[in-house]
Simulated assay, not measured.
Amino acid sequence: MTAKVIADDAEALAVATAFADEFRTGASARDAERRLPRTELDRLSDSGLLAVTVPAGHGGADVRQETLAEIFRRLASADASLAQIPQNHFVYVNVIRAQGTDRQREFFFGEVLAGRRFGNAQSEAGTRHVQDIRTRLTSRSDGSYLLSGVKHYCTGALFSDWIPVLARAEDDNLHVAYVPAGAAGLTVVDDWDGMGQRTTASGTVRLDEVTVPADRVVPHHLTFRGPQLHGAVAQLLHAAIDAGIAAGALAEAAEFVRTRSRPWFESGADTAAEDPLLVQRFGELSLKVRASEALLGVAARAVDAARDDLTDASAAEASLAVAAAKAHTATTAVEVADALFEVSGTRAALDSANLHRHWRDARTHTLHDPARWKLQHLGRYVLNGTKPPRHGLL
């Protein structure tokens, strides 16, 4: 398997823009038919776009996080499901960067540059809370491990070459085990039936005493013992997806009003696009989308600044900036996707139009983690100077 290698940030953005324009055309049909985007993902891999965060020392472009966030925003404005699938891929490339050994970095970065994809097997259902991880790595006498557990919401796993699995070792510390697709004892089940993000295949992964060599296991717990950006990077990409959903919904609403809506008779306007009340409402929605995009940019630049000089203070600022962006983009995505019907009228509710996919995607994706806790951390910092905690969701 070979893939193109993207040279720099400008090329990465150009490739993302071209794919967004192309993928937008079939997004509604893929959603309506739940047609999984294997071909589209293969094209992303072949283009080199999924390798743009590989460090320069290993042959990658090592793009800025501001660039990566914009890549996700543009892709999500076209197809939110397709954009969400590689989110975990970049998160687990980052895990290798943070805690991988030199040998692990050389191997896995080589895999990514060749076009191979990481999925994820992280979340579990039925536990006390999201960080109550019960999947276990049990050491063997030869230094390898046995991995057992059941994972849910495993976005990307069905399409991946490697499935990073979050698990606890016998000392209860968190590790990530990188398991190759097709490994004995590994089962990936396409049982995702969410109302939105329909083509992410965010189903179940079962692990029944999967053998994992020691050099495929990374000590993830060490990431959180000092200043870290793991959570900020992961959340930044989620915020970018929400910002993209909002932008896509607003653009489709505007196109619908221009081409398919009738003016309200009391407006005196010749077209719906000239109705002053609709003009006002579109201005309000545009303001919210622009504000979300601005906060996303501020957050991405804060993450970049912290990567350049990582301290407790810079990591905290990055996490808080991302929290602000995530809270705003989540609210905006749901509001704009809902307002699409308000401004477009009755015909927009026809199932054949499938405009409700924007709302379904926004409502589903924004459930990933609660925005109310982002506000808690922002408030605690403003009032009491309390730095945000070190975990993977902030």
Rank of each mutant, 00 (worst) to 15 (best):
residue 6 I to C: 13
residue 11 E to P: 09
residue 19 F to S: 02
residue 31 D to E: 12
residue 31 D to T: 06
residue 38 R to D: 13
residue 41 L to Y: 02
residue 44 L to I: 05
residue 44 L to E: 10
residue 62 D to K: 03
residue 63 V to M: 00
residue 66 E to G: 15
residue 72 F to D: 04
residue 72 F to I: 12
residue 79 D to A: 07
residue 86 P to N: 11
residue 87 Q to V: 11
residue 99 Q to S: 01
residue 111 E to R: 15
residue 121 A to D: 01
residue 122 Q to W: 15
residue 129 H to D: 14
residue 136 R to W: 10
residue 144 S to P: 08
residue 145 Y to F: 15
residue 168 R to P: 04
residue 176 V to I: 13
residue 176 V to F: 07
residue 178 Y to M: 07
residue 179 V to D: 07
residue 195 M to E: 12
residue 197 Q to C: 09
residue 212 V to Q: 04
residue 228 Q to H: 08
residue 244 G to D: 07
residue 245 I to M: 05
residue 254 A to K: 12
residue 265 F to L: 10
residue 266 E to A: 14
residue 279 V to C: 10
residue 284 E to W: 05
residue 292 S to L: 01
residue 293 E to V: 12
residue 294 A to D: 03
residue 312 D to Q: 12
residue 313 A to C: 01
residue 313 A to Y: 04
residue 315 A to L: 15
residue 317 E to L: 07
residue 317 E to P: 00
residue 321 A to V: 00
residue 325 A to D: 07
residue 327 A to N: 06
residue 338 D to P: 00
residue 340 L to H: 06
residue 341 F to D: 08
residue 347 R to I: 03
residue 352 S to G: 13
residue 360 R to S: 13
residue 386 T to P: 01
residue 387 K to E: 14
residue 387 K to D: 15
residue 387 K to S: 13
residue 389 P to T: 03
